[in-house]
């Protein structure tokens, strides 16, 4: 089992404190965040699917079935929930193919709650949240088939993706769906950029729920994350400078710093 190093014992609680304090602060202080084009386009994509009278296909990616439900998948579900809530206003059908069977009851409950919150519980259809398979390429084939059969008007791909990303996104492209993707998997970002209309890159993925919901908790968390990133940036700059200058001066300080971080 892996355990925390001394530096991790300091940094993780420090970053956690920043995030929790900002969440509490945001409950009484108004916070604004910049415009993110990929997320603004979600309304446009829902509108397009509604105008065309076609359904939307929303996927939360593969996650890692071995490790149970992942944080990335939960965040993806959080974004998809907002999309479902927005689409409920226009009664646009949303189909959610599920990869991990552990996510099936969670997804069903989240979508049911989303429709309830918009006052449209009648739109909830158990057949729209489908467990397909927990095999990577079988899932890719099933989602591609679903996109083709349903003639998706919009596809939303959020979460962790691997080699199947291109199969799914290219299928969406071929049926003329407006496509929005967001993944923290850096290896898959180029594939999404090549095939999707809008791509949410890196930690914008974690800003999505705050941006869409304007919920103080999510906004505060986002500001907390930015403060933590700022601290991390300062540490990186100070560490790089200390190592560079200590090497120039022939001091062992650089090695001590490297040992601390390794």
């Amino acid at each position: 089992m892996e355990h925390a190093s001394p530096l991790v014992r300091i940094m993780v609680p420090l970053f956690s404190t920043c995030i929790v304090v900002m969440i509490q602060t945001a409950r009484w202080k108004q916070i604004k965040i910049r415009r993110i084009h990929g997320l603004t386009a979600i309304e446009e994509a829902i509108g397009r699917a509604t105008e065309m009278g076609r359904p939307m296909v929303c996927t939360t990616g593969l996650g890692t079935a071995r490790a149970g439900i992942e944080i990335v998948t939960l965040q993806a579900l959080s974004i998809i929930t907002y999309i479902v809530r927005s689409s409920a206003k226009f009664a646009t059908k949303a189909v959610l193919p599920v990869f991990d069977p552990q996510m099936l009851p969670v997804t069903q409950e989240a979508v049911r709650e989303a429709y309830n919150l918009e006052g449209r519980p009648d739109l909830y259809n158990t057949e729209d949240i489908r467990f397909l398979t927990n095999n990577q390429f079988s899932y890719a084939a099933a989602v591609a088939g679903l996109i083709w059969r349903e003639k998706a008007g919009a596809t939303f791909m959020f979460g962790n993706y691997y080699a199947e990303s291109l199969i799914i996104a290219e299928s969406g492209n071929q049926v003329g769906a407006i496509q929005i993707a967001g993944t923290p998997a850096t290896m898959q970002i180029p594939f999404f950029i090549a095939t999707c209309d809008y791509v949410i890159i890196g930690d914008e993925f974690y800003a999505a729920s705050a941006y869409l919901s304007k919920e103080p908790t999510a906004l505060g968390s986002l500001v907390g994350q930015d403060i933590a990133k700022g601290l991390l940036l300062i540490i990186v700059i100070l560490g790089s400078a200390a190592i560079t200058f200590s090497q120039m001066a022939g001091s062992s300080l650089g090695k001590t710093i490297l040992d601390l971080f390794s």
Binding site: V12, F15, S16, I19, V20, I23, I71, V72, L74, Q75, L77, S78, T81, Y82, V106, E109, A110, E113, P184, G202, D203, F205, Y206, S209, S213, E215, P216, T217, A218, S221, L222, G224, Q225, A228, K229, L232
Partner: peptide, 23 residues
């Protein structure tokens, strides 16, 4: 950014601070 984002979501879920998402 992703690492810190993961930490933030994990904290919100763990401490029950998540609002407006899931259930």
């Amino acid at each position: 950014g992703i690492g810190i984002g993961n930490l933030a979501v994990a904290l919100r879920v763990w401490l029950g601070l998540e609002r407006g998402a899931f259930f």
